[in-house]
Write a protein that binds this DNA or RNA. Structure first.
Length: 331
DNA sequence: AAGCGTCCCAACCGCAGGTTG
DNA sequence: GCAACCTGCGGTTGGGACGCT
C-alpha cells in the first residue's frame, strides 16, 4: 500500500517504510525526542528526507496513535467541527486525541464527505445543495399551481401568471415570499379579496418555520456550531441540531436511515427521505383551518370539498404531501 | 478463475507561515 | 529588512485490497 518506492532525485528513499526503518526512527526519537527533522535522518541512520521521517512519526509511529475505525462519537465530532472549521484537519485533530490530521482527512474524504453528498448536502458548507433546493421549490410551486388548477372558483390563469411572475423574479421562491408577494400584489381585479387559498397560504406564512427550504433538514449553521463548541453540555449532546441523518448511523455498506440514498442516489428516494415529516407535523392542523375558512367564506361545496379532500383523510398520510409532492415526478 | 473497477489510506508534494542569523 | 531554513498544513497520488461480473 502507499506510494511506489521510486528513488528520490537526491538518492533518498521514498515510498512505504519497512520495519527496520520504523525501528530506527522510533529508537532515535525515544532517545532524543521528536524535532530537528532535517538532521534527524542522518543522525538516525535513515536514508529518508526529514519530512518523510516527521510524517512517519506523526501519522504512524507515535505511541499515542489510536488505531481502528472511528467511533460514532468521533464521527459526530468531526462533522460538528468541520461545520465550523472547514478543512482545518489539524485543528479538528486536536479535538480527537489519538487521531491524526491525515487520518481524519482520509476518513472525511472517503466516508463523511460522500455521505453528505448523498444526503444532498454541500460537504463544504454543510448546507443543502442549492440545485436540489431549487428543484424542490420549483416542484412545490408546480404542484401548488396544479392544485389551484382544480379550484374552479378562482381565476386560475391570473394566479398562474402571478406564480410565474414570482418564479421569474425571485431567485428564492420560498412559499412565504410567494404568499406575501401574491397577497400584496396590485391585482385586486384578478384575485378575490376573500380568497380561501390566499387565506390559507397566509396562515402558512405565519408559521415562521414554514418554507419549502425548511422542509429540508437544516444543517448546522456556523454561529450555532460555534455556540455548540463552546458549550460542553451541548457538545456532549448527540441530539444537537444536526439533521437527523447526521446522527451517526452506520452507512456505506452499513445499514440505516441512509439506505435510500445509497441506492443509486435516487432523487425521489432522497426527497422522501428528507423528512418532509417535519412539515406534516404542523401542516394538517392548518389544512383543517383552511377547510373551515373555505366553507365559511364561500359555502361552496366544490371548493371546500377539494380542500377537505386534501386534509380530510386525517390519517397518517399528509395532505401536504399530496398538495406539494403528489407529483408523478416524485412517484 | 480472471479481469475490471472502486475503495481505502499511507505517503508525497507544494506552499505558507514562523524562526533565525 | 531580507534571505535561508524549518515546520506544519492541506491537497493529491498511487498501489494494494476488495468486490463485482
Amino acid at each position: 500500500m502507499g506510494r511506489s518506492p521510486s528513488s528520490a532525485k537526491n538518492g533518498l528513499k521514498k515510498g512505504p517504510w519497512d520495519a527496520e526503518e520504523d525501528k530506527k526512527l522510533a529508537d532515535y526519537i525515544q532517545k532524543h525526542g521528536p524535532g530537528g527533522w532535517i538532521s534527524l535522518p542522518k543522525l538516525a541512520g535513515l536514508n529518508r528526507c526529514g519530512k518523510s521521517c516527521r510524517l512517519r512519526w506523526i501519522n504512524y509511529l507515535r505511541p499515542d496513535i489510536k488505531r481502528g475505525s472511528f467511533t460514532p462519537e468521533e464521527e459526530q465530532t468531526i462533522l460538528k467541527l468541520h461545520a465550523v472549521l472547514g478543512n482545518k484537519w489539524s485543528a479538528i485533530a486536536t479535538h480527537l486525541p489519538g487521531r491524526t490530521d491525515n487520518e481524519i482527512k482520509n476518513f472525511w474524504n472517503t466516508h463523511l464527505k460522500k455521505r453528505l453528498i448523498r444526503m444532498g448536502y454541500d460537504p463544504m458548507t454543510h448546507e443543502p445543495r442549492a440545485d436540489l433546493t431549487a428543484c424542490l421549490r420549483l416542484l412545490a410551486v408546480n404542484n401548488l399551481s396544479n392544485f389551484l388548477n382544480h379550484n374552479t372558483l378562482l381565476d386560475v390563469n391570473a394566479i398562474k401568471l402571478q406564480f410565474l411572475k414570482q418564479i421569474l423574479q425571485s431567485t428564492d421562491v420560498g412559499l412565504p415570499n410567494l404568499v406575501s408577494s401574491i397577497s400584496s400584489s396590485p391585482a385586486p381585479d384578478l384575485l378575490p379579496k376573500e380568497n380561501p387559498i390566499l387565506n390559507s397560504l397566509s396562515q402558512l406564512e405565519n408559521q415562521s418555520s414554514f418554507s419549502l427550504g425548511a422542509t429540508i433538514p437544516q444543517p448546522l449553521h456556523h454561529p450555532i456550531s460555534t455556540t455548540l463548541l463552546s458549550n460542553p453540555t451541548l457538545q456532549s449532546d448527540p441530539q444537537v441540531p444536526f439533521p437527523p441523518s447526521f446522527q451517526t448511523v452506520p452507512f456505506d455498506g452499513e445499514v440505516g436511515q441512509f439506505s435510500a440514498f445509497s441506492q443509486g442516489d435516487n432523487l425521489t428516494d432522497s426527497i422522501s427521505q428528507w423528512d418532509f415529516q417535519s412539515v406534516t407535523d404542523f401542516v394538517p392542523s392548518i389544512t383543517k383551518e383552511t377547510t373551515t375558512t373555505s366553507i365559511s367564506n364561500h359555502g361552496d361545496v366544490t371548493s371546500s370539498s377539494s380542500l377537505i379532500q386534501c386534509g380530510g383523510d386525517g390519517g397518517s398520510s399528509s395532505p401536504w404531501r399530496e398538495i406539494f409532492f403528489d407529483d408523478s415526478i416524485l412517484q
